[in-house]
């Protein structure tokens, strides 16, 4: 799995950080998403899928085959 984030769509809600804090963080100054781990381990995949689903900016997309 490979995670792609679109910073321009991110609205800094931090929903992703609440769900998967070891995969996502936010910048201190403007709250835009920071991808800590673009290729998370399998144990994190379900949480990451939930992040992509609830992100209110539709800013997280996943390449499941990568």
């Amino acid at each position: 799995m490979k995670i792609i984030v679109d910073e321009e769509k991110c609205c800094g809600a931090g929903q992703c950080v609440l769900i998967a804090p070891d995969v996502f963080d936010q910048r201190d100054d403007d709250g835009i998403v920071v991808l800590l781990d673009a290729r998370p381990p399998v144990v994190r995949h379900d949480a990451v899928r939930e992040c992509a689903a609830v992100c209110p900016g539709a800013a997280i997309s996943l390449d499941e085959d990568a």
């Binding site: 800094g12 809600a13 931090g14 950080v17 609440l18 936010q26 910048r27 201190d28 403007d30 709250g31 835009i32």
Partner: peptide, 11 residues
């Protein structure tokens, strides 16, 4: 107000 990360931390 212009503090997204910090706001989330106070949630």
């Amino acid at each position: 107000w212009r503090m997204p990360k910090q706001t989330r931390l106070h949630r």
